[in-house]
């Protein structure tokens, strides 16, 4: 197992690349998903307000 992580002595160069790829891509995905969830929530609030306004 250790051998796998050492990667023939080049692990210190290889793992940061895979690590950054994971952090960067997952981070961007999460912020995008969060923004989508927020806009959906805002829309449902606005739609509710609009229908309440119509019924009032």
């Amino acid at each position: 197992m250790n051998e796998f992580f050492e990667m023939g002595g080049h692990g210190i160069y290889i793992w940061p690349c895979y690590g950054l790829a994971a952090v960067l891509l997952i981070g961007l995905l999460m912020t995008s998903v969060k923004a989508l969830a927020k806009s959906k929530k805002d829309l449902s609030i606005m739609e509710q307000m609009t229908s309440e306004g119509k019924n009032a």
Binding site: L25, L28, L29, S32, V33, A35, L36, K38, S39, K40, D42, L43, M46, E47, M49, T50, G53
Partner: peptide, 27 residues
């Protein structure tokens, strides 16, 4: 695949946000 996925998510989010802005203005 990742690019397509994140692009779709971000575009859907922007479209919904502009709808929210339009509703807010109307309100």
């Amino acid at each position: 695949g990742y690019f397509t996925l994140v692009l779709f998510i971000r575009m859907r989010s922007e479209i919904i946000s502009s709808k929210v802005r339009a509703l807010r203005l109307r309100h």
